[in-house]
Design a protein around this nucleic acid. Structure first.
Lengths: 196, 196, 196, 196
DNA sequence: AATGAATGAGTTTTCATTCAT
DNA sequence: AATGAATGAAAACTCATTCAT
């Protein structure tokens, strides 16, 4: 796979931000990892913060777009399963992106944070909608939709911190397992858990 | 409440590390927040990292001690509920400590990290034991104990990121809700969910 | 004489380390003397200690190389005279280098010190060899070779602390005088003292 | 031997200044070595520099007083031997004092340096006198009295850098050896070398 | 006599960034 | 496209010293 210099910078930043955090990563780290001088780096990026924002934006954009496709069809149970599987697969296969998004929001300045948080809120809104519809139709039984939404998302995001392809579960098994857990959490029968 | 200078330093560090991250918090930030000059700060602490370790250690020690008391009595369902409530209450009422423990482990040097991770692993071991026993007795039905343990812990830790006493649920309701969710996750009946 | 920035840094360090000692010379001193900001200094050097080591290494390397050439030919008396003249001329004309080498070894960290001391020991080994051979051949009469070696070296190194071209003796006279003193010290006749 | 606190401070300073240099020794080092807090230290000393000056002064005073006694009697050869033996014995048995005097003069401020250098010059003046008298009487044959004086002093001071009681020569042998070397240096017969 | 507390100024080194080439 | 050179500001931490108790 050929990679442009800009992509090399982006992916170096991704890895380093995920490993050491935004504040723990220096411009010279980035330059070294990208095989450039620190001055050259600035040909391919704006400020360090803009680089972070770009990473977060593209990660959230991708998730949001995929979520929009999924949310179009099916009953709430099917759509919840699809959302969970999307989320879990994404966090399992792109753990660096998702960890950066999840962990470095506080490193952003106010304006940048507002933008990123807005994206994240839109994405979480999809989950909220599915849950509300499931509850409204009597498919789900939950105490508080907002609480369950948060519990679900935290639970699923966690896979970015531990899953590896070399482990006990392969990607499909992981996704199926989490879909089943999600259905239990919302008090639905498990008939949807064989998704994807 | 009278507070010694040392306590002021500790609590300033706690707040700042939680808000801005370890690497995002400078010695001057700490000094300002503690009402000291940066030189005076060093009367009350060793290095910045030692301060972080001290915070993490005391947080994990407290959790571990409490978990050890709980793990002594009851059937797996009761003990799981107790663990969940302990964890959720702790994360709800001391979100700064728990967020620092959860988020800043990577900021530690190798030796310090080893110590903190060992404590964390002992604590998570308590969860693992309860889950294994519940599965062995047929009280719980789960696909993978390790996966469910992680899912549970991530889910419960998440409350440190959003719960406030001013919100929809008070502390007792929050704890009860999460206990119920946990029992669902492990495939147990909900008869234990009225704990504490 | 055109001088690169790196050379300016090196020579500023040389002068300051010789005048005020390594620990007595701050990075700001160096920067001021080199006409740079303290941040810019780090374009041209590694750490302050590496700068010191580089100075010491190049000084000792030069001396050692010259000593190796001299040690090849002649009887012990001639070779001793040559060594003394080399040493005295070097210490007279490059007093800063030699004083830094002589005075700042203790400022080095363990590893750096080991390297520098090894070089110095090799150089002093050349003196030891000449003295031993002179004693073996009956050309020199000394109580203890090791003591005389030290006495000789200290005596000769001293010129770096007082000789100036404006003084009583010019360089040739200085070298001749010390050669004569050295021959007296080792109990040789003075027939070699007209060297160089 | 009972030691007052002030003496403990003085001797801790002596050891540390000799080992690490004046600029390389911090007040807290001193306090630790003296078994006091850094604040308490200031009960027993003025500034750090005054402590250094006191050490230098007492060392030089002692040497000067002893030299004055010796210079009173005997012919130049005898007096030179006596001076050499005094100097060598002092440098061998009190290497810390003498090294501090020899190495840390540059660490002093202008006024303090003037005082210490004046003492040192008076002491070296005794050597100069003996040498001049020896030359005048035809007992010594030297090219330049000033050069020989410096060579002699450097040579003899060197013992503070290497002699240990556990080594090849005991103190008397060392003194005798250096007396012999000195007589050779000044071109005298060796009949005086059996002194003390 | 002794020391905790305190600090302004200092230490060495790194930061993110700019700019002329 | 690429980078050496450059820097003001900041990093974590230590300095020698004072002072109230």
């Amino acid at each position: 796979m050929v990679q442009s210099t800009e992509e090399r910078v982006r992916s170096a930043a991704l890895t380093l931000f995920a490993e050491r955090g935004y504040h723990g990563t220096g411009i010279r780290h980035l330059a070294d990892a990208a095989g450039l001088s620190s001055a050259s780096l600035y040909h391919y990026m704006g400020t360090k913060e803009e680089l972070l924002v770009a990473i977060m934006r593209s990660s959230l954009d991708g998730l949001l777009e995929a979520a929009d496709e999924l949310s179009a069809t099916g009953d709430p149970g099917e759509r919840l399963v699809a959302l969970v599987q999307l989320h879990v697969r994404t966090h399992a296969t792109a753990p660096e992106q998702t960890r950066v998004v999840d962990d470095e929001v506080n490193a952003l300045s106010a304006e940048a944070r507002a933008e990123v948080v807005a994206l994240r809120d839109r994405y979480e809104g999809r989950w909220q909608e599915v849950l509300e519809e499931g509850v409204a139709r009597g498919d789900f039984q939950v105490g508080s939709v907002a609480v369950v939404r948060r519990a679900l998302l935290e639970m699923c995001s966690g896979v970015a911190r531990w899953w590896t392809p070399a482990g006990e579960l392969d990607l499909d098994a992981l996704a199926a397992e989490y879909a089943a857990l999600a259905l239990r959490l919302v008090g639905a029968s498990e008939r949807h858990a064989d998704g994807r």
